[in-house]
Nucleic acid binder design. Structure first.
Lengths: 353, 353
DNA sequence: TGAAAATGGGTCAAAAAAAGTCCCACAAGG
DNA sequence: CCTTGTGGGACTTTTTTTGACCCATTTTCA
């Protein structure tokens, strides 16, 4: 008779517990980000009847976790504390801790952080991931280093969730690579600036037109100002980047059907600031631009933080993080599960909606 | 924002959880002791509709915790493991651990063990207490010592729950005191024999008629055989005894109304093998008999284990254990709560039915 | 400033789930 | 062999849940 962890006992004897816990946690989390949230909008968000939501809210109100006022629903201080403080226990309950252990073995990474939920079903998960990555990022920052950030919604979320508290002095924030044809909100330049503002430190941008020819790039490379910035970028001590699926990123950057088919033929599954990888982690294509030289990056950058979520990115994450050493990986539960599935490891844990 | 223990978080966000957990735990515990148990008899036991119980059983069956067969309901191995293994987590959840801490401060005792539930409402609790005390008892046993046990239902439960596994060699089990007019099943002699059989060791009994005069006792004292046994008893290295309320014990031993009124006048609240105590722990009356000399007992006995349950015994427990050093105290949740209430300490914990 | 939209609260009927109450076939024990 | 207790099934009644409203108020945006 070996003693299982108490969480397993709880799940055995009260099987409806994870459902209740998760449902309310997601509700509180949503309120936390969407406050003041309306009853109807919440019901619409969770695709659930208005009355069932009302009952849940009633319970939360009785527990003193939410204020429910004319203007909407807000978290009480107790609710705020709960939604942040519950996280480690929730991870334990969902078996995410053991999942993190497994991912450590599976990938070339020193630390894994799985946040509960599915980014594709609940956008709040992205912000939670951002919060987690932001915490790690702050711990990596040391005086006088260069922090390089990539574009994408994930990194934007990190910037959003960074508390605006001054970082160690002398830090410079730069984009990892410039001119990749992203939407402006998710451009590396924009995010670098955003992060720098939050950290109350300086930044340097790399403004490049999209899709330049190789010759033009060569010429730009000799421009003193650009060369100076590139040098800064390539002396980065911390790198924060997201990972995209090859197809999505190609489309988002305006590739034609022909190019996408070429990528498929070449076996591209993942993308990191303009470089496309196949499943073995080899660069099979890249968008012409300037920035970090990916080839030997892992040797020079002290801390590489990767953030990516959603089950559709599982393959891409394996391709990149499974073949290139990284220090920190932040992902969501659905991506983690998918990676485990592809990796042939199955855990008997509760599934999250 | 201080981090509360996770259990408090769980109670906040899923307030119906303790109810579910406790209900099913009690159900499993009952099945464990009453197996094979019938659906109707269980419903009658818990004073609950047959259908509600049927639904609970359905859930437990789905979880693989019970076998439900024609002959009745039995625990599966998983169920057995759960009902024993869940205990520490349950105590944590109910705040019994903190309660134990408080009782340690309040009473003169080195170790406290509070078992969940109310002995007066659920007889199974007595057996759980017996199990807990039995475990402690075994740990106290060393070769060649004398173990003295008192009478009462609580000590009988300890004997019942002792696994019949050979104890260290040379142990002698004796009754703490003889001839107190108890019902035969709960007489110290009987329990001593029962315990000895379980421990596969020898025992010596002290057969005395009830209610003897002081002169007769003096004479018996000089009988060589009796003197020899008394010497054994007073060399006890381990003492296990229960505690009774003064009134109950007086009645059970056939006292008249007049005597009971006298006890009340003298302020007797508790009783330990024939000695009646007032609230300050002073002996105010005793049933004439032979056995352990209570006065200096605490000086000579290495380990004194006390077992008592039920809220009505709270006063008696305080009187005895609050004034005389004891080593181990096993009690039930209801007694513990009542003691805390009398002691002026209120914990905000969930109440158990 | 004013209208439109969104808020919580309340109500009421329909629907679903739960609960109470049987009876039945079967197995065990005296 | 019969009595007693067992689980399972079926049925009705009751309770709860749910969905779909409307209302008064507040907020928001033009």
């Amino acid at each position: 008779m070996d003693l299982l962890p108490g969480e397993d006992y709880l799940r055995l004897i009260v099987p409806e517990f994870p459902e209740l816990l998760l449902g309310r946690y997601r509700l509180l989390r949503r309120i936390s980000f969407a406050a003041p949230a309306g009853r109807r909008s919440l019901a619409a968000y969770f695709q659930v009847g208005e009355k069932v939501l009302r009952r849940e809210l009633e319970i939360l109100r009785e527990q003193g976790l939410i204020y429910v006022e004319k203007r909407g629903i807000t978290l009480t201080p107790a609710g705020e504390e709960l939604v942040t403080g519950l996280n480690p226990y929730l991870k334990l309950m969902l078996g995410l801790n053991t999942m993190e252990q497994e991912l450590l073995k599976l990938l070339k990474v020193k630390q894994v952080n799985v946040v509960p939920g599915d980014l594709e079903k609940d956008e709040v998960v992205l912000l939670e991931m951002g919060r987690a990555a932001a915490k790690i990022l702050r711990e990596c920052l040391k005086p006088d280093i260069v922090l390089a950030v990539s574009g994408g919604t994930s990194c934007a979320a990190v910037a959003d969730m960074l508390p605006d508290l001054a970082a160690p002095p002398g830090i410079t924030v730069v984009p990892a690579r410039g001119g990749l044809g992203e939407e402006v909100d998710y451009q590396a330049n924009n995010i670098a600036a955003h992060v720098a503002r939050k950290l109350k430190t300086r930044y340097r941008l790399l403004h490049l037109p999209d899709s330049l020819s190789q010759e033009t790039l060569e010429m730009l490379l000799h421009e003193p100002k650009i060369a100076a910035i590139l040098e800064r970028i390539n002396s980065a001590g911390v790198l924060l980047h997201g990972i995209g699926t090859a197809e999505d990123m190609a489309r988002r950057r305006g590739a034609g059907e022909e190019e996408i088919r070429m990528l498929q033929v070449k076996g591209a599954v993942g993308e990191v600031f303009g470089f496309f990888f196949n499943a073995r982690g080899e660069v099979v294509e890249c968008i012409p631009s300037l920035g970090l030289y990916l080839e030997d990056m892992s040797n020079r950058v002290d801390n590489v933080i990767v953030i990516a979520g959603g089950s559709k990115k599982a393959e891409a994450i394996i391709a990149v993080v499974g073949n290139h050493p990284r220090d920190h990986l932040v992902l969501d539960e659905s991506a983690a599960r998918k990676i485990m599935e592809i990796g042939g490891i199955d855990l008997k844990t509760v599934s999250t909606g």
